[in-house]
Amino acid sequence: MESKANQKYTKVSKSDITKLGLRASLFQLGFNYERMQAPGWTWTQIPIWKKIFGDDKEAMSEAMVDNMNFINTSPPLVSILLGLLTSMEEKRVDRKTISGLKNALFAPLAGIGDAIYWFTIMPIVGGICASFASKGNPLGPIIFFLVYLAIFLCRIPFAHLGYDMGTKAIDVIQENSTIISKSASIMGLTVIGALISSYVTLSLKVKIGSVSLQKDFLDKVFPNILPLGFTFFLYWLLKKKEVSPIVLIAIVFVLCIACSWLGIM
C-alpha cells in the first residue's frame, strides 16, 4: 500500500528548487494587513506542490488552507524556509509538524533578515554608493544595482540550501539568530554613527561679534556635534514620546524653514 502511495508523488528536481527560489522574489505580492504575506507565500509554492501532490486534490487543498495563515518574514531569506518546508512536504511529514515549523521559524528569520539586510547592508551599501553619486560618479548607482542583483540571485542558492539541509537548517537558524542579529547590530550601529557625522548637514550662521559660532567655536570643540545632537533629539522623540516618523519629518521642515526665515541657518 505504502509503496503505491509513494508512487503517486514525484520527487522534486533541482530545477524545481531553482524555480521556487526565483518565484520567491515575488512572494510579497498580495501583501495585506490581515494575513500580510500569506497569499503570496501560498501562491509561490503552488507549482512545487503540484509536482509533489500530483492529482491529490485533498493534499493540495490541505496545504493551501494551512499556508493561508498569517506569515510575515524576510523577503531576501524566505527561500531558505521555502526550501526547508519543501523537503518536508516531499517526505510527507505530518501537516501539523510542517505548519508548526513554519510558525516557529518565520519570525526569527524575519529578525535575522531585517538585521542583516535593512540595518547593516542597506546603510553601508547605500551610504557608500550615495557618496559616489553625490560626486557625480555613475559607479554609485551601478555598484548599488550589482550588489542588490547579487542579493536577488542569492534566493536560488538559499532555496537549495534550505532544501538540502532539511531539518538541520532549523537548529542553525534558531541557534544563530540572536548571535547574528547582535553582530549585525554592532556593524550597523558603527556605520550609522559614521553616516550621522557624514551626511546630516546642520550648521549655524550665527555670529557673536566677529566670531562665527559654527566655524570658530563648534567645529573646533567638536565637529558634527549638532547633527549628532539633533539625531538623538529625534531618537528621543521616537522612542520616549512615541512620535510618528511623519510628524518628525514635519518637525524637520518647520524647523528648517523657520531657521531659514530667521537667518540662523
Binding site: I196, F230, L238
Partner: peptide, 14 residues
C-alpha cells in the same frame, strides 16, 4: 537634515 529622521528610526530599532 532629513537623513537624521531615518537614522533616528534605525537607532530606535537597533
Amino acid at each position: 537634515v532629513l537623513p537624521a529622521v531615518g537614522f533616528a528610526m534605525l537607532l530606535k530599532v537597533l
